[in-house]
Computed example of a mutant assay.
Amino acid sequence: MDPRDLYRRWIDELWNGDLDVAPELVAADFVGHWPDHDVHGPDEVARIIGETHGMLDALSFVVEVGPLVDGELVAGRWRGRGVQDGNPVTFIGNDLLRVADGRFVEYWVASLPLP
């Protein structure tokens, strides 16, 4: 799969709540480097995304920039929107992922809430 298509599925499908696609997009030896912990494999990725959806109602993500591809690296910028305690919440983030054999094997993310 083209890395651009893989990234679009990462956001459009997986991060928008279709957790069943995690094994298609994420390798078994995947390591995701979140700011405060690492996540391993597709099952943990799906669990973390599910927990994120559990914290916000009507949560959705869109790609705003990219994806940009350089060799085995894919980068993109996204915007997330949801509702928490009746209030709209918006945040942005930047992803950097490494691809091997058609799946993501490593991930770095930085995200910030918007006022």
Rank of each mutant, 00 (worst) to 15 (best):
70 D>E: 15
46 A>R: 06
93 G>Y: 02
31 V>I: 15
82 G>D: 09
54 G>M: 05
60 S>K: 10
108 W>R: 13
78 W>L: 09
60 S>D: 04
33 H>V: 15
21 V>F: 14
88 P>S: 07
91 F>V: 11
64 E>G: 01
52 T>M: 13
25 L>Y: 11
108 W>K: 10
100 A>I: 12
10 W>F: 10
109 V>T: 06
38 D>F: 05
91 F>E: 09
60 S>Q: 02
27 A>W: 05
76 G>A: 00
49 I>Q: 05
27 A>V: 04
75 A>T: 11
2 D>G: 10
87 N>D: 14
59 L>E: 03
48 I>P: 00
16 N>C: 03
70 D>C: 15
85 D>H: 14
61 F>T: 10
55 M>W: 11
53 H>M: 04
88 P>T: 10
42 P>E: 11
72 E>I: 02
104 F>L: 09
92 I>A: 12
46 A>N: 00
81 R>S: 08
36 D>P: 06
108 W>C: 10
11 I>S: 01
71 G>T: 09
68 L>C: 00
67 P>D: 00
90 T>Q: 05
92 I>S: 12
22 A>V: 03
14 L>Y: 12
85 D>L: 14
66 G>A: 02
9 R>S: 14
52 T>P: 08
21 V>W: 14
15 W>M: 11
37 H>E: 01
43 D>M: 12
45 V>R: 08
115 P>L: 06
89 V>P: 04
100 A>H: 08
74 V>I: 11
87 N>H: 14
22 A>S: 05
102 G>L: 07
9 R>G: 13
49 I>V: 12
10 W>Q: 09
86 G>C: 08
16 N>R: 03
83 V>E: 06
108 W>Q: 07
106 E>K: 08
87 N>K: 14
49 I>M: 06
43 D>H: 11
81 R>I: 07
58 A>L: 09
77 R>F: 02
40 H>Q: 15
5 D>E: 13
107 Y>D: 12
6 L>E: 03
38 D>P: 03
37 H>Y: 03
94 N>H: 08
74 V>P: 08
97 L>K: 13
68 L>S: 06
94 N>M: 09
110 A>T: 08
80 G>Y: 00
46 A>L: 06
31 V>T: 15
16 N>W: 06
64 E>H: 02
83 V>T: 04
30 F>T: 05
